[in-house]
């Protein structure tokens, strides 16, 4: 019994030391969900109702918060709250779109690379390193230059850049899983490769990949804001938080809300997603869940 218990006991002791962190995990997850939830709620509401039409420039320019413009207006007299609500939609679409694109391409490429051996493996990993060294914004500018600046081209650019990072992570994880005895054990009982991938490889890399994708979601939101700031994102009247920042910066001393509000929302969404990612680790991996 003793040797077995020593074996099982070891991770337990590590967990005991990390206990305060473990408890804070669920708090982390809750706060993260609340932050992200608020943004999602705002985005959903904006689909059905916004205080003013997004292209309505009838208000006075650069009004301070008050009535009828709760958060004031921008330099064209558009309602700020309306712009922020639509911006939430765009930020979430940018994050989700890039994560889906980058996740699908990245995991597929990473799986292929993980199974590659010898020279093919070397070629693929060199290629991935080059792609990753390539700045996302530069790639995005190239994509935007060949197509019109739009939310879609921003998503394509961010998603492609993300897929290289996801692919490199997936490749390493796949190689590590394939080295395990349980893969060989499954093969000795006649399980075919496609089944091994579906039943063993994907579930075993998923906890780490999904946490990484959640982190990438936050980065994608930031990247979209940067692209919009540079004029490479969604064109007007679709207000992206990044473009709102850019447009409001000249009048930051007259109308600070125009800069602060989108800035705070970007930070709230990115922090929220990161907290969810951190808290999600335990949920995704049964070996990390607390034993009853």
């Amino acid at each position: 019994m003793s040797a077995e218990q020593a074996l099982i006991g070891a991770p337990d002791e590590q967990e005991a030391q990390a206990a305060p962190r473990h408890v804070s995990r669920s708090v982390t997850l809750t706060i993260g969900c609340v932050l992200v939830g608020v943004i999602v709620l705002v985005a959903v509401v904006s689909l059905f109702w916004v205080p003013f039409a997004p292209e309505d420039t009838s208000g006075r320019r650069l009004m301070p918060p008050g009535l009828p413009h709760l958060l004031g207006t921008d330099k064209l007299g558009r309602d700020l709250l309306t712009q922020l609500m639509i911006g939430a939609r765009i930020a979430l679409a940018a994050g989700a779109g890039s994560v889906v694109l980058g996740g699908v391409i990245g995991v597929a490429a990473g799986l292929a690379a993980g199974f590659a051996t010898r020279w093919l493996d070397d070629v693929v990993s060199a290629l991935l390193d080059i792609l990753i060294a390539f700045p996302t914004l530069l790639l995005a500018m190239l994509v935007a230059a060949t197509r019109a600046a739009s939310l879609t081209s921003a998503i394509v650019a961010i998603g492609l850049a993300m897929s290289a990072i996801v692919a490199r992570l997936t490749r390493v994880l796949v190689k590590r899983v394939l080295a395990h005895d349980f893969i060989t054990a499954a093969r000795t009982s006649g399980t075919s490769w496609p089944r091994v991938v579906l039943e063993h490889v994907l579930p075993n890399i998923w906890p780490t990949v999904s946490v990484n994708l959640a982190l990438q979601f936050g980065l994608a939101v930031l990247a979209e804001a940067s692209l919009s700031y540079l004029g490479l994102g969604a064109p007007p009247p679709n207000a992206s938080w990044g473009r709102m920042l850019q447009e409001a910066q000249a009048s930051v001393f007259i109308a600070p809300v125009g800069v602060i509000a989108p800035g705070v929302l970007i930070v709230v969404l990115v922090i929220g997603v990161n907290l969810v990612a951190d808290g999600f680790r335990d949920v995704a991996d049964p070996t990390r869940r607390r034993r009853r």
Partner: peptide
């Protein structure tokens, strides 16, 4: 599996942890 099958040395790693 049918002709031959293997039991491995390290039972912890021979089972899928997830």
């Amino acid at each position: 599996g049918r002709a031959a099958s293997v039991v491995f040395q390290e039972p912890l790693t021979a089972l899928d942890p997830l």
